[in-house]
Amino acid sequence: MSKVEVKQKATSKWVCGGVNEHQRRTAGHFWQRPITNVAVLALLLACLPLALTSGFHYHLAVLVGINATIAISLNLLMGYAGQVSLGHAGFVALGAYGTAILSSRYGWPVPLALVSSAAGAALIAFVVGRPILRLKGYYLALGTLGLGMIIYLVISNEVWLTGGPDGMPVPVLELFGGRLTGPADWYWLIAVMLLLVFWLSTNLIHAPLGRALRALEGPEAVAGSVGIDVPRSKLLVFTLSAAIAALMGGFLALYAGFISPSLADFLHSIELALMVLVGGLGSVVGSIIGAALITLLPQVLTVVEEYETLVYGLILIGVMMFMPRGLLSSIIDLWRRIKR
């Protein structure tokens, strides 16, 4: 045993060299620090209502906020941990239907139904996650797609519980004794949620845990060779991502007052992936921008609604072909080139 101890002393000997002064500075400029980003976002969210002049504007802002939060959760999984999901809408729908069913059919208080549904979705993700996350690349895409479709089919077919394809109504959310009815009330609630998830995500990324997750995107062998428990890390981010998506799904249901199985369908999953890809894999700020663009696009396109599928398809192709790192990175690259 004594020999080992000697060796550990030796170990600390060779890691204690002189400190490089240059290194001390690279802890990050203040604008790169997580807390700065959070503060800037908080400020923007607080000021945004100045630009929102109608109830419809608030309505759009709420939708963007919900989608942005979901997109951030999906980006944690796809962008940071490098695990594709083509079934994320399934978790959104689980949260939405869970909240609706528990509160309206079983009389649970709405906030309890909301939190329980998110926890339930997280539990499901935790249970199915381990086997599914063993898959890689295309197979993972297909596996998550299958998972999403199964959720969709259950929701569509269990009419007695979910109302089937006709959908079901959702009760009004009461918080702190007041009823949240108008989009303006909802704006502040969703803004707080977005800020919380944004804060949590940036904290995660700028920490050992986040670095370990990012390592999953690199060569398979690396993570294991530095002692990262790969299956556990994947499962953690999958569960977290599902929990956030389900929670926001619950809020979406409560806000909309009515839900239908299309929440869980394949195209909704694609739409969510599109938000992440347009914003850029691995960019939390990008996800907010991507969610805003994809949410607002149909509003611009309403005049020509029949073009929606075509335009979405073209955007998908265009983004992947011409700006595979997302809109934000592409614009930053362009800006740098112009400055030079």
Binding site: M78, V84, G137, Y138, A141, I270, A273, L277, E306, Y307, E308, T309, L310, V311, Y312, G313, L314, I315, L316, I317, V319, M320, M321, P324
Partner: peptide, 24 residues
């Protein structure tokens, strides 16, 4: 050079374009 995920997304996009064009 888009990588597996990128190519999957592109083929999904092509599918949507075909579907959208057929709808039109």
């Amino acid at each position: 050079g888009a990588g597996p995920l990128g190519l999957v997304i592109i083929t999904l996009g092509v599918g949507m374009v075909l579907r959208g064009a057929a709808e039109l």
